[in-house]
C-alpha cells in the first residue's frame, strides 16, 4: 500500500452512555477511494463522525497525515485538511446556495475555485440565489459535496451521498466522485448501495457491530460476492 493518509486504530466511541465503536481499525492510502460497508447500525456513520471529532467521547487513535487527532476538537481537525459531507447533507436554510458554498473556510491552499465548482455542478450556478433547502434532493447533495471542495481539504468523508436519490442522479454523483479521485482527493465513502460502491472504490472495509471485520479489494469483489451478501444481509 502507498503511504497512509489516514490511519485508524482501535477506535472506540460513545454516544452518551451507549458504546458504539468497539475498536475500529483501517487505513487509507493517499489518493485512494475506500468505502465502509455494513448494515444499518454497524457504526459506519459514527466512524466518520469520530474521525471528524463530532462524537463526544472517543478513544484509540486516528492519525491524519502522521498527526494524532483523537483528542482534538472538530474545528482543529477540519483545519488539518479533512472535510465532511454528512448523511443528512446539512444544507443551511438561512443561507442561499452561494452562501452555503462559501461557508466552509479554506483550510489549505489548492482548493477548487467557485467557477470550477459551478462547472462541475451547473445547476448550482443557476440557482445560486435560491434558499439552500429549496433545492431538490440531488441538488442539495451536489451542494453538500461542492462546498467541501473549495477548502483545500485533501481527505473527503462522504456519508451515503446517493441515499434517496433517483438512479440518474446516483450515476451523476458516481461520475463526480470518480473525477474527484482523479483530481487527487482521498475519499472515505460510507455506502449502503453496494453496487454504487463497487463502481467507484479501490477497496472496501466491512463493518459489523462497531468493528471492521473484513477488507475486500476491488479486484476480489466478484469472487467475494457471496461473502459480501452475507455481511450486508442482501
Amino acid at each position: 500500500m502507498r503511504d497512509a493518509l489516514l490511519k485508524v486504530d482501535r477506535l472506540e466511541a460513545w454516544y452518551g452512555e451507549s458504546h458504539i465503536l468497539h475498536g475500529v481499525g483501517f487505513e487509507i492510502g493517499r489518493g485512494e477511494l475506500v468505502t465502509l460497508l455494513g448494515r444499518n447500525g454497524a457504526g459506519k456513520t459514527t466512524t466518520l463522525r469520530s474521525i471528524m471529532g463530532i462524537v463526544g467521547k472517543r478513544k484509540g487513535s486516528v492519525q491524519f497525515d502522521g498527526q494524532e487527532t483523537v483528542n482534538r476538537s472538530s474545528d482543529t481537525i477540519a483545519r488539518l485538511g479533512i472535510a465532511y459531507c454528512p448523511e443528512e447533507r446539512g444544507i443551511f436554510s438561512s443561507l442561499n446556495v452561494e452562501e452555503n458554498l462559501l461557508l466552509p473556510p479554506p483550510v489549505k491552499p489548492g482548493g477548487m475555485g467557485l467557477k470550477e465548482i459551478y462547472s462541475l455542478f451547473p445547476n448550482l450556478e443557476e440557482r445560486r440565489r435560491s434558499q439552500g433547502t429549496k433545492l431538490s434532493g440531488g441538488e442539495q447533495q451536489m451542494l453538500a459535496i461542492g462546498r467541501i471542495l473549495r477548502t483545500g481539504a485533501n481527505l473527503l468523508l462522504l456519508d451515503e451521498p446517493t441515499e434517496g436519490l433517483a438512479p440518474v442522479i446516483v450515476q451523476r454523483i458516481g461520475e463526480i466522485i470518480r473525477q474527484l479521485k482523479q483530481r487527487g482527493f482521498t475519499i472515505l465513502l460510507v455506502e449502503q448501495n453496494f453496487r454504487f460502491a463497487a463502481m467507484v472504490a479501490d477497496r472496501h472495509y466491512v463493518m459489523e457491530d462497531g468493528r471492521v471485520v473484513d477488507m475486500i479489494a476491488a479486484a476480489d469483489v466478484t469472487q467475494s460476492i457471496d461473502k459480501l451478501q452475507t455481511y450486508l444481509g442482501v
Binding site: I77, F92, P105
Partner: peptide, 24 residues
C-alpha cells in the same frame, strides 16, 4: 456578510459549522 453567514449557519447547526473548521 461572511461573518453573518457563519452566525446564521451556527445558529442552525453549530456542530456542522464547527466541523468545517470554524471556531464556534
Amino acid at each position: 456578510t461572511r461573518l453573518g453567514a457563519y452566525l446564521r449557519a451556527a445558529t442552525e447547526n453549530p456542530t456542522l459549522v464547527r466541523a468545517f473548521g470554524i471556531n464556534v
